[in-house]
Design a protein around this nucleic acid. Sequence first.
DNA 1: GTCTATAGCATGATAGAC
DNA 2: GTCTATCATGCTATAGAC
Lengths: 249, 249
Amino acid sequence: MQHSAPSFREFSDRFRSLETTLSRELFREHRDQMRVKKEETAAENLRRIIDATLRLANRKGFQSMSLRDLSAETGLSAGGLYAYIRSKDDLVRLIQRHGVALTLRSLEDAIAAADGPRDKLRAAIRAHLFLTETMQPWFYFSYMEAKNLPRRETREAIRSEVAVEELFTGIIRAGQARGVFRNGDPQLLAGMIKALLQDWYLKRWKHRQRNVSVECYADAVQNMVEHAVLVPPYDEAPAAAHNATCEEG
Amino acid sequence: MQHSAPSFREFSDRFRSLETTLSRELFREHRDQMRVKKEETAAENLRRIIDATLRLANRKGFQSMSLRDLSAETGLSAGGLYAYIRSKDDLVRLIQRHGVALTLRSLEDAIAAADGPRDKLRAAIRAHLFLTETMQPWFYFSYMEAKNLPRRETREAIRSEVAVEELFTGIIRAGQARGVFRNGDPQLLAGMIKALLQDWYLKRWKHRQRNVSVECYADAVQNMVEHAVLVPPYDEAPAAAHNATCEEG
DNA sequence: GTCTATAGCATGATAGAC
DNA sequence: GTCTATCATGCTATAGAC
């Protein structure tokens, strides 16, 4: 049952097609708010605007990023930007919606494919890491700017965060019920797992610098979590077939 | 040797006196930059300004916080603020310096008091959690605004972060050398521990809402880390004498 | 030592030429 | 469909009355 632990590569391919679909949906939903009607140029410029915004916001903060900065980064004129977005708040809403949709759909797919508590837990861990690896700029933005967003978006961000954590709580509860996992507060455990997973996108510069790959980090997290959660006779991780080159201290 | 695991209460008392000392030092260092010379009013107002800034910045972000907001929150007039700080950047520098000094001194003290890898690791975990519990607004501010700070302060923040992590790396290395800790990349492990510790102040609202105390969380982290790090015959945690009421799922 | 008033400037957003 | 020119707003910071 290695169905539950696909490699990053496999994940990445499935993700790309999902993104194309959702990007098109995004454009269609916002078409009536945009002055630009020709689909191909509009879709491309919208993507450029979003990417540039994430880049700038993650470098110096969304509030400090002026529309003049954005116009420089995208190559569009200051006035031209308003052909695509109504306001700065509108822009942030757009970005947020797109990211949440992508995240949820992608996670749900990946997790449903596994069965049994241990495999489900692994699948969830790996999917989350692969997802945040692929969409790192969005996750970082979403985390760092959440509290400064318009009220509605802040609430949405929290809801999404809680939903993900509950997913883990559920898996742990199921495992405890079957006697596969050791007892202990499932919510607390889920929170700790989430903390480990979030570190991957919050401190990416660090992991990059140390040459730790996602696969490596995934194995490390899985290992720590299983040590903490499985009932004592722990058979040391059979994982990490993909790269034997996880840096050794 | 329970010297290494003081309760939050004990920590808190020692901390308070340290803070008084450093607050006074802070005022003296910046005295010449302030228009206000009378020590007692000046020191008090400076403290009010710092507290208000942390409150506001953590609510809506430092960039979005105007000096009008700050003047409303402190009760001082917009103009009056400039009797204490030269500029907004100056304010942030002040806050940052104060926090770093407090953190380092406090952590060093607490850790030096323990000996042996296992006790040192425990002491480090507890001290870090207690410290962030006490100074939560500062830590949150420092984490969230780090990248928007003036260049020099950003670098300082990263240095401080790395220094703390290396402290953990060192303890783990020592433990592995003595055969008390299992093998595995010490840097990666230290990073994961740090992630668990940071979650305490980054998601405080969540832990509050769930009624998890620092002591509880400290025990949970210690437990997970020891499961992952100690050589197999793991004697289940002798900790948590302080409160038997850690919420059970 | 604190306040009111205001200078000087950067920003978000728009109108109209091309 | 994109650009240049411009406006109103709200900001930081200062000067001077009290």
